[in-house]
Design a protein around this nucleic acid. Structure first.
Lengths: 224, 224
DNA sequence: CATAGGACCTAATATCATTAGGTCTCCCGT
DNA sequence: ACGGGAGACCTAATGATATTAGGTCCTATG
């Protein structure tokens, strides 16, 4: 009993030490000695808990992403409309990243470089995390909120790409500002592409209206 | 003379060996012995050319990105319209990536994890590469091709994010398909968000039109 | 033809990751 | 109460690999 929780405790001490050091100095520059010192034990003891440094690198994000995945269902539960869900998804994820910047840093900066990444549990969980988005876009398309010709995969690529880009920059800049700065505006801009109205609706209105919009003085031919 | 070019030659042999091995096995798993063997010399000789393994990691993408930067001006020269330039930018970049997958792999997968990345020449060149986009969006906005309220930075985030996401997936999947698959559709979808017409134009038309579009059966309230 | 410099080599050295082979403590059955 | 055994931890190898020291050899030049 006491043993069990003692052992659990040590394990967690190792994890949080490793997390801190990996995020601070990078995976390569962090030595196993560093980690064990920080956790208050010897190198050898660490090997009782983990197979090695790489195992540690893979375990940390695994825990985090599993937890995210568990939370996601609940977070989206009861939210109405595809755009509502999409917005909640983004805000939720950004907040989780802000709350666990060390985990996020490891996932975004160190994990992808690992040759085994594609075979890890983490990867498969990240895919699940993203596949929720496909459902949301599908829902939006069939409900008519989003364009009828929307391809959920392409929409997901844009959404995830933008999100990851914002997060990666934030991590590289040492988390020196809030992830939510401008998020509203970027969300609005991006989701505009998904909305049902543009050409379809314009076609339904009179075509002659095209070109008279106050902001549209430019040469449209260039688009062709 | 012969010396000079001999030396140049050796340097390039080292670079291309390192590139190949880094991309194949990853940075960590590649040893200096591997690289020098592949290049046909001893480890020690390699240190005549590079300060070490990390220097090599940073040199390789530096060369590539500098070259890209030099090329970009020329590629965009003479292209009319912001959307025209945007499209050319994307197609050009994707092709360069497809042509130099090893360089791309190193930039996208291994570079960001390096603690010094932010202080490297590569980083500053990548920024320059991306800052072209700001100009393009600015041009689009003022010319009226793009929405009047378009924030060039946000548009860039979406554009770069999407592009990088597509490339990263392609690299992780071992470049097993063409980067140009679906590129047209994704480009169309994404740039739709930037186009000048939506709300501005709809507002100019009659507001009562909203909701009667054939594809809009869904509940719009959820958007609020 | 002697020699200086450059390109390269072999053989250290230093820094880790990982493992071998203990010690110490606490708990359990007798 | 006590012997032993299991678990948690330790010190001290071992092995791999980045980096450096200190040459050798070849070539070009006076």
């Amino acid at each position: 009993m006491a043993n069990r929780s003692q052992k659990e405790n040590t394990r967690e001490r190792i994890i949080s030490s490793a997390k801190k050091l990996f995020a601070e100095q990078g995976y390569q520059k962090t030595t196993v000695v560093d980690i064990s010192k920080q956790a208050g034990l010897s190198e050898a003891a660490l090997y009782e808990y983990f197979q090695g440094k790489e195992d540690l690198l893979l375990t940390i994000p695994d825990l985090w992403v599993s937890e995210l995945l568990k939370d996601l269902d609940e977070q989206l539960f009861g939210i109405k409309g595809a755009f509502g869900k999409l917005r909640k998804y983004l805000w939720w994820y950004m907040r989780r990243v802000e709350q666990s910047p060390l985990d996020a840093k490891i996932v975004y900066l160190f994990l992808k470089t690992n040759a085994n990444f594609l075979n890890t549990q983490v990867y498969s969980n990240v895919r699940k995390l993203y596949s929720y988005l496909l459902d949301i876009f599908e829902e939006g398309r069939t409900s008519g909120e989003m364009r009828g010709d929307l391809n959920p995969r392409f929409a997901r690529d844009i959404f995830v790409g933008t999100m990851d880009h914002i997060i990666t920059r934030w991590l590289l800049k040492d988390m020196s500002y809030s992830l939510f700065e401008n998020l509203e505006d970027i969300f609005e801009l991006m989701t505009d592409a998904f909305k049902a109205h543009n050409s379809e609706m314009l076609n339904n209105l009179h075509n002659e209206a095209v070109g008279v919009g106050s902001e549209n003085g430019g040469d449209r031919e260039a688009l062709a």
